[in-house]
Design a protein around this nucleic acid. Structure first.
Lengths: 156, 156
DNA sequence: CCCTAATTTTGATTTACTCAAAACACGTGT
DNA sequence: ACACGTGTTTTGAGTAAATCAAAATTAGGG
């Protein structure tokens, strides 16, 4: 009995989400898996490696579809373009380096999903909480001069 | 005794920050005070009302200077342009309406500044934590059809 | 009141992304 | 196995938000 239940293949992921299986979609899915927290441009570069005909707009289209289908999560830290990752479903957060913009995952502070509840929500029905930590990554701590793209606002 | 210590005038704020006092700066400061969570464009519109010669670039320049000086705080919720507010120093957070993008302040969940500490920070030296809640504002709850500018991703 | 550095204006440019029409291909039905 | 329809991708253009740079202007110390 070869179980079909052990981590679905990219094909299955797409099919199960009701999306057609296409080469660009498989390639983007793989690229995001390999390099989490990538932006559209670098995914485009990665995809071009194995599928030279692909257009940047296709990558944007695929990322939109995958995000809508819930196969991929989009984050948008201040001052960065949108980043994509495959780790979904758990509610995890991110640390962003104020100097070089490197991103790492942070497990949810309080365990599962509703890890935060606003004190007073002004009548809003709150569906989600998003947490971004800002700091200096190990590399930039060691190498203080080398700010790659400064101006990220550490909230204050 | 008319105390000089009660909330500094805009002039004083600028001077104390080592910035020259100029009409555009006073106007932007006032406009942000009046309409918190405004973006550059709408501040530009407001400023134009009382100071017709002002350029959009000047508004961007002023906002940059005020932000650097810590007189104004910049936030950038996903899918919105940068927003500015005068409430600073306290570490407060925001709820953003997923439908109309309205923003409200939320007091820090755990009291003062270090209201969150990442469980494992991958060697980052964390300086700040930023929390954004996503939900439906009262108006959009009552008026479900009227999505003003959809596509804000409720994190998932 | 003058002078200099900071600020603002004017004008061009970049980045990240969206829109639309035409060509193409996945996969359902036969 | 094959055609057909719709969803996808390509091609090409366009937009919003913001940044960059040089020239003109102005705040405010001396």
């Amino acid at each position: 009995m070869t179980s079909t239940r052990i981590s679905p293949t990219p094909r299955e992921l797409l099919r199960d989400a009701g999306l057609k299986v296409t080469a660009p979609r498989l390639a983007v899915l793989l690229a995001v898996e390999r390099a989490p927290h990538s932006h559209a441009d670098s995914l485009f570069a990665a995809v071009r490696g194995e599928l030279p005909g692909t257009s940047l707009q296709a990558v944007y289209g695929v990322l939109g579809a995958l995000t809508t289908a819930g196969l991929v999560r989009r984050i948008e830290p201040a001052t960065s373009p949108a980043l994509y990752e495959r780790r979904i479903g758990d509610n995890h957060h991110h640390v962003v380096c104020t100097s070089c913009k490197a991103v790492e995952d942070i497990d949810c502070v309080h365990g599962a999903a509703p890890c935060l509840t606003p004190s007073s929500s002004h009548g809003f029905v709150v569906e989600a909480a998003e947490v971004t930590f800002w700091g200096l990554c190990p590399r930039c701590q060691a190498n203080p001069g080398a700010a790659r793209a400064a101006s990220a606002p550490p909230v204050r």
